[in-house]
Each structure stands twice: as C-alpha cells, then as structure tokens.
Write a protein that binds this DNA or RNA. Structure first.
Length: 424
RNA sequence: GGGUCGGUGCCCGAGUGGCCAAAGGGAGUUGACUGUAAAUCAACCGGCACAGCCUACGGAGGUUCGAAUCCUUCCCGGCCCA
C-alpha cells in the first residue's frame, strides 16, 4: 500500500488539491512537506499529535518534513475556528512558548542528517525583516479581497457579531507567504494541516502559482473530535498536554486507556504508527472482548512511548497496574516508588496519625477547596489505601503503605501519593 | 453624537425591594450499575473557623431596617437614528 492509500484508509485524508498530481509526485521521489504550529501556549496538546504524526508518516515513507514554529503567525492569531478576536500574546510569553514548542516539534521526527532529514523552521526568520510596503506589493497584490472574504474562516467571523480585525484578516497572507518562502528556499512542495486550515493552505498554493508559476500541493487531515462532538484532548482538568510537567506520562497514558469504545478505532487508525492490518486485527480482537480494553492499552502504550520515551511509558503502565489492578496495600516499596514518581504527589508533614486529608488533597490539586473535600468525604469518595475515610477525614498511621507512602484516592480514578520529604 | 435594550455563578439563562448563595438547562464532581468505557439513575455543584459567618448578580457611590432588584454616575456590548 502506498503512502496516500494508507493515509486514506486510516481516515487521515480530508481533502487534497490535486490528488492525481500528489499521487504522481509522491511516487516520483522524496518531497518536502510542512505543517505549521502556532505558539499559543507553552506546550502542544494531544490534538496536535495527528499533525505531528502525519509528518512522521511522510518521513517514514522517505520524505522530508519541515515542522514550522509560528513565531510570526503566533503574533497575529489565526481567525479560524473561533468567534472572537484573539488576545495578542506579549513578546516574552511568545518567546517562551516558542522555545518550549520547538523542543516538542523535534521529538517525534528524525533530525539525523540524510535524505529524509527533518528541518525545524520558524516563520519569524523570514517575516520579521519584511517591510509593510514590500509585503503589500509582493504578497497582498496577488490576492483579491473578494477571494479572501469568501474563505469560511473569514466569512464566519465577518458574519459574527464581533467581526474580524484587519490584523487577523491578514493571517492567511502570512501563511501563504510562508509556503511560498519554503517552496523557494527548501523546495517544500506540499503543505499539510488540519481541515480547518484548508483556506490558508490553498492561499499558499495560489501565491506560489501566481508569483512563481509553479504548482504546489496541499493535503488536510480531519480534525479529531470526541464521541460527543466536543473538542478532542480536553478532559475535566483541561487539555492533555505533551509537556510532562503539565500532564505527567501517567496521566497522558490514562487519557488513552480511558478512551471509550466508540472512538478508539478512529483514534488508533489516525494515530498509531503500526501497520494498518495489525491495527484492524487488534480492533477486531477488541470487539470480541471490549472489557479487556486491549485496543486502548495498546494505543496508550505506543503513544506514551513516542511522546515520553519507553521508560516513562513502562513506568506509567506499572503504576496503573498497581492502582487499578490489585490491592495497593499489598504492593511492595519498589513498585510504590514507581507509582509515587508517576502519580501526582504531595509532601507529608511528620506525623500522620490524626492528620486531616483536606490540605493534602487541595495541595495536590485534586480538590479545589476544603469545602469540596468535605463534600467528597460525605459522599464516601476518599480513600487512604483501601480504607474509606470518615467524614472527619482523619488519617491513621496504619494507612501508610510499604516504604512509608500514603496512597490517597479520590473517586475511582484519581490518585495522589503522599511522600515524606527526603524519601523516595 | 442621539435614542433604546442589555451586562447575573464555569457557560446559557430566570429573577425586578425581604421567602436569594440566587429558578431551569448545560458542563463538571461523586455514588450505584459496569469494563479504568458508554448509557441510565441519584446526590452534589462560591468560600470558610460550616445549625453560623464572609464574598458574589459589570465598577463606584446613594436611598432603605433590608437591594441582583430603586436612584446617580462611570465602563462595556447589541440594535435603531445621525
């Protein structure tokens, strides 16, 4: 199966400009492709994985990926997919975000010198020095406002009550110019992105055609949505981030393990780098005994290893086995040490006997307030080890597990490990 | 610039002097049932030193025993007129 057919079979192709030309071009030899990521936060989240892995698939098939960090476009903000104007980030925040995101963009791709070497680029490098007049003459001249306001992302904003600023209106020109620059400077002939980027991407192919007289190509992948149609990658606690400091490898893995059956097939096909036949076999097996969650576990392990490394993935799996598998009160100190390193943790004061859990749970971020802890206690939702705590929330020294760890559990799936400072 | 309608808790949205921490819905949390799933049912859903107190209905003043509700003023948004 060739690359394009594989992408299609995985449900990763939403639209392409000229599929025959793309097919032929891919068969002809290595192609340069790029996907842009704007530094709107200091970490990417799981929603960005589709795009990152999209590039990885091309690289594995022998092509050259150019992950682009939007140092320039991030200053403007993409008008697409939102009903209101963005608040502009200040330059310190932007610089910080950019640095963090660059590191993440590099993680899933191969940067070793060679024919399919990845190259990280930043559109600020070729945008910052351009003057307003140059831009208007070299880029703006090639677009009519008529076409620009016809694009979905712009039209929906024009029709919204808040309107759209001139700044955000210009976004697509910047992105078009990026494509043109990469085409000329690096021979990047293909731009990929999520389906909501279609308008911006095609603006680039048009600019290349008008100004250079060359054909550039475009391909988009569907936006990933949850089963209820809401935005992918959001949980109760917010987004699931790729940065281990924001979302621990354990939490990251749990996100996938807890995916529901309805969407796991879509997720596995779109995200896993395993051959499609193997994925289909796994999904068939999963359908036989969904309660075993083998598809969820397989995808969770694969993605955690890709994003956080094999060791972190193994530890996250071991921690989950203790917390959801057997009896944590029987786990030995070595295993609990792994749990303690993976699950959110909180420092214990000297003495446990008679200590109330309130501050521990609030401190760990599991509960927002003392009142909430009281409510949880009243609902019998808090445990230490296996013991359901009384309404007073008092702990006993007998609640300590092997190695002096205190395992607090809120509800069925949230855990906090209490550790004495200086140990484990 | 003139007129007019509006700004309520995470979101939508009721409330037009005391019975208001504020109806209802959504989101969320927990419990039951399960498979670390979905659906369903139930409870909870501002904070705290928790039978009480504090903070809160755009901001600041005021009237009143008492204000989300009335008055003044300022800020912000929609619509209409210029």
């Amino acid at each position: 199966m060739d690359l394009l057919a594989d992408l299609q079979a995985r449900g990763l192709v939403h639209d392409t400009t000229d599929s025959a030309a793309l097919q032929a071009r891919l068969a002809h030899g290595p192609i340069g492709l790029y996907i842009g990521f704007d530094p709107t936060a200091d970490s990417l989240h799981v929603g960005h994985l589709v795009g990152q892995l999209f590039m990885r698939r091309f690289q594995l098939a022998g092509h050259r990926p150019f992950p682009l960090a939007g140092g320039a476009t991030g200053m403007i903000g993409d008008p697409g997919g939102r009903s209101e104007e963005r608040t502009l980030l200040d330059s310190d925040t932007l610089a910080h975000n950019l640095e963090r995101i660059k590191a993440q963009l590099c993680r899933l791709l191969d940067f070793e010198p060679g024919p399919h070497q990845a190259t990280l680029v930043n559109n600020a490098d070729w945008t910052t020095g351009v003057t307003m007049l140059e831009f208007l003459r070299d880029v703006g001249k090639h677009f009519t406002v008529n076409q620009m306001i016809a694009k979905d992302s712009v039209r929906s904003r024009i029709e919204s009550e808040h309107g759209i600023s001139y700044t955000e209106f210009s976004y697509m020109l910047l992105q078009a110019n990026d494509f043109r620059h990469l085409y000329e400077a690096h021979g990047v002939e293909l731009q990929a992105g999520a389906s909501d980027q279609w308008g911006n991407i095609v603006a680039g192919t048009e600019l290349i055609r008008r100004r250079l007289g060359k054909q550039a190509l475009a391909i988009t992948h569907p936006l990933m949505l949850k089963s209820d149609g809401s935005k992918f990658g959001k949980t109760a606690g917010g987004s699931v981030w790729l940065d281990a400091a924001r979302t621990s490898p354990y939490q990251f893995r749990q996100f996938w393990v807890q995916s529901d059956d309805q969407v796991i097939g879509t997720y596995a096909r779109m995200l896993s780098l395993q051959p499609l036949v193997e994925i289909e076999a796994l999904l068939a097996e999963h359908a036989q005994a969904p309660e075993r969650r083998i598809a969820q576990r397989a995808l969770a392990d694969e993605l955690t290893a890709l994003v956080h490394g094999a060791d972190a993935a193994a530890h996250a799996a071991q921690a989950a086995a203790v917390l959801f598998g057997g009896d944590p009160t029987e786990a030995d100190a070595a295993v609990l040490a792994i749990v303690a390193a993976e699950a959110p943790s909180v420092a214990l004061p000297g003495e446990i006997e008679g200590l109330r859990v309130h501050d521990l749970l609030v401190g760990a971020g599991v509960a927002k307030s003392v009142s909430e802890v009281n409510r949880l206690l009243a609902q019998k939702a808090v445990r230490a080890g296996n013991r359901v705590l009384d309404d007073d929330g008092l702990l006993r020294s007998a609640d300590l597990l092997a190695g002096g760890y205190l395992l607090l559990r809120k509800g069925k799936r949230e855990f906090v490990v209490g550790k004495f400072p200086g140990r484990g």
